[in-house]
């Protein structure tokens, strides 16, 4: 809250003191100031993100609750409200699958224009509107590192333009593993030849992933291969004559890989 100060001033004035001598008196200045309190309009943006944690492929929703707070006086009637949020531009990582109370969302500029139809075309003091966007995550964002972004709301009742912002976002937790098995020996191979296999397990996500003991298995076809020998195996990997497997739990951090190499003779 602030005050409106308004001052009126008379710099100088004169009057005749003696009508016989015509002596005049000069005075001034005089002034008077009006000091009246001013009530500023208040707008708020409450950005609500749910759920807090998601996996790749999951859906998440952001609500933008926009309010023209009733401050007890005739305030502005906003006829245009926009929400600017970086997440609208992160189309590589999240696809917009639905929206409510938006007339448009520009994925290039990140500006969403709020549809005020449901509040009669203007957001009057005491009114609130919720605009929502639903996304499906398709990738793990790098910058920002997650879907945590700041939204900026602009309320227009020209010449009054008010702005406010709020921050939240869903966080991807993904520990997807990929596995590949290749023969390092050029194909085709021949009976009697010793060949080398390499198995690579990679965590393509951003959180730890755990393979419990015995949950990784590789059964070399013993009808075609013999003399199977692990090459510099990780301590957790063993061959029991039938299968190659992990003897203890293996934790793979995001981006980490486990490489298992073994040789065998073709029979």
């Amino acid at each position: 809250m602030s005050n409106i100060l308004n001052t009126a001033t008379v710099e100088e004035y004169e009057y005749e003191l003696d009508p016989n001598t015509h002596v005049e008196v000069t005075k001034g200045p005089i002034s008077s100031t009006s000091d009246e309190p001013k009530v500023d309009p208040v707008v708020t943006l409450d950005k609500v993100c749910a759920p807090d944690y998601i996996d790749l492929g999951d859906t998440f929703t952001i609500d933008y609750i926009l309010t023209n707070v009733d401050v007890g006086a005739a305030g502005p009637n906003f006829n245009n409200v926009t929400v600017t949020d970086t997440i609208f531009t992160m189309t590589t990582y999240a696809t917009i699958t639905g929206s409510t109370n938006f007339t448009s969302i520009d994925t290039g500029t990140g500006v969403g224009t709020v549809d005020l139809t449901s509040v009669g075309g203007t957001l009057d003091p005491g009114e609130s509107i919720t605009a929502s966007v639903t996304f499906t995550s398709i990738g793990v964002p790098v910058n920002p590192s997650q879907f945590v972004t700041t939204a900026i709301a602009l309320f227009y009742d020209v010449p009054i333009i008010m702005t406010t912002n709020d921050t939240c976002g869903s966080i991807i937790r993904n520990g997807d593993l990929t596995i590949s098995k290749v023969m390092l020996t050029p194909s085709p191979v021949y009976v009697g030849q010793t060949v080398t296999y390499q198995i690579t397990i990679t965590n393509t996500g951003n959180v730890d992933s755990e393979i419990e003991a015995g949950d990784f298995t590789d059964y070399p076809p013993l009808t075609d291969l013999t003399d199977i020998a692990l090459v510099a195996p990780p301590a957790s990997i063993s061959f029991d004559g039938t299968k190659i497997y992990n003897t203890v739990d293996i934790t793979l951090a995001g981006g980490a890989s486990l490489v298992i190499t073994f040789t065998a003779k073709v029979i």
């Binding site: 759920p51 937790r173 993904n174 296999y197 996500g205 076809p221 291969l225």
Partner: peptide
């Protein structure tokens, strides 16, 4: 020579544990 390798693994999302196989 047909050779397969498989793995089952877990990770968590919030309080939820996800189990997948590859």
């Amino acid at each position: 020579i047909i050779n397969t390798a498989t793995a089952t693994y877990q990770y968590t999302i919030g309080t939820q544990s996800i189990t997948k196989s590859i």
